[in-house]
Design a protein around this nucleic acid. Sequence first.
DNA 1: TTGAAAGCGATACCAA
DNA 2: TTGGTATCGCTTTCAA
Lengths: 333, 333
Amino acid sequence: MPTIKDVAKLAGLSRATVSRVINNHPYVSEEKKKLVKEAMKALNFYPNSSAQKLRSQKTETIAVFVPLLTNPFFAYLLEGIDTVAHDYGYQLLVCQTRYDKEKELNFFSLLKTKQVDGIILTSIENVWENIKHFTECGPIVLCNESINGAKIPSVRLDQEYGGYIGTRHLIKKGYTKIAYCRGFSRDEFASRISTEREEGYKRALSEFGLETRKEWFFEHGSDIDSGKGVLRKMLSQDDRPNAIFTGSDQVAAGIIMEAKTCGLRVPEDIAVIGFDDQPIAEITVPPITTIMQPMQEIGKQAGKLMMDVIEKKNQEDMEDIILSLHLIERAST
Amino acid sequence: MPTIKDVAKLAGLSRATVSRVINNHPYVSEEKKKLVKEAMKALNFYPNSSAQKLRSQKTETIAVFVPLLTNPFFAYLLEGIDTVAHDYGYQLLVCQTRYDKEKELNFFSLLKTKQVDGIILTSIENVWENIKHFTECGPIVLCNESINGAKIPSVRLDQEYGGYIGTRHLIKKGYTKIAYCRGFSRDEFASRISTEREEGYKRALSEFGLETRKEWFFEHGSDIDSGKGVLRKMLSQDDRPNAIFTGSDQVAAGIIMEAKTCGLRVPEDIAVIGFDDQPIAEITVPPITTIMQPMQEIGKQAGKLMMDVIEKKNQEDMEDIILSLHLIERAST
DNA sequence: TTGAAAGCGATACCAA
DNA sequence: TTGGTATCGCTTTCAA
């Protein structure tokens, strides 16, 4: 592989001049510029990017933490982030945490070792206390997450409101026994999303004088299979709910699928409301009433936010970006 | 940010010794090792990865080219690749080509600039002639693709067979007017997948003495919406097919969805067979008969193959890996 | 077992 | 406008 030195030699010029041509610096005569370009072409030269990074102290790369690439919700976020990053000339390093604290923690070293210029988190596995100190090593931006009282740039949605309108919709449709299905264990205080939604759910119930029941709280993963599991659990209950609020269209789809298997009608026997408005929400029969989140837009905004933070260097006083949610009614409720 | 020099100073040792500790080299006394580790901890030191890469000439990063992250098929491939790469300590740089020749070509410079140790292609936009020379810059591995006559390590499936068994299945079910729906324009000779499947389709038809009709060939994208478009086009035909072979479950799902909208019954009015066995294939009503490809496994094998190529340095004599396909019958046919 | 120093490949300052 | 050279931070030979 030829280096800048080889190019300089062939062109009969100095490395400095070659570097100037590479970086489009002014003060290079057209004549020399041509000479250099010819030499680069002749040698098929490309600048070594590790050397450039070492020298310039920037990598033009950002890491994106996602729990799982095969979850369409995260694929859409990632796609949105990529759109913006690519426009700014940045690369994306994907880091699958697989919902694992340890893995997530390890990935943060990317920032310490200067492998990336910043990190975008689309989910958080560890409690903020354990992550906070990484902000000293470089910018961290939250994408569809939020942290209580932490000062960290983020793009998010009013999840409490989402929980509220979804539940209120069910109530107004006449359902009174409404279950709630949250993403992960309640012991986890890392991600606040589920908790916020739950608050909205409770607010709606209490507003209409309905009771919450401990047996009607479910925890699940966020895929189709866990949705199936939730329905089976519900079926085993004596006094079972007639509607359920879920945190993901994937889960909702699983519930609908399993309901069919079990001979239950949706929404007559069990109404289901999803979250996200993923393509699958229109595919199921019946299609899923859901709380629409602009997935790609969330990603784009997070990407843009990261670019802003990197350029301005002052993540201190960045305003959070809050996008809006709304309900899309389909036949599952 | 502290450097190795700072650590050396604090520990009262040389940079060489610190480096040895970082890299777990032998011949460092336990005593000094401890000293170094303490110094590293005290300074919160992490080695600069650009410097390491520059020095060692390896990046422990591979680029994966995918057309679109939101297409579940590619998300599964990527997830499979990541599993293996991560096990080997490699990072993944995702490059969305968006089915664009130009973008794909630009991404190849990652190899020239030594930003990645290798590239895995999950699709090919450019003709091989234009890509071939990049193999001189580093290993390229094909994942679910193949190139006529090119000597390049790849993981693939017998697409012709897939086209054949899918079509034969339709024929045996009694359908005689079978349409074929390929991924992209027939002018593109870059990707051979669709062409190979088409050959299988034609073989099955001719084996059973059925005719192929030009009007029954459709071109589409590979998402739900393009499936809807295909159905509408079919509907506008005078003599329309009563079955259709599609290259993706996404497309099949779109067809089924649109059929419902148009008041057609599946499979009575139009039978549909998909490809991949994505989760969506079980979600639609009716669920989709499909040709199962082990998506994650394809990705894993490609990741493994890349690791082997990188380690052995001889991509010349690597055998292609061929995984098998089979038909899964559901209610859409 | 340890250290001195060359070098990985590019950039940018200072001189000319 | 051009060139010499120190420098980015680490690894690795060679010598001690």
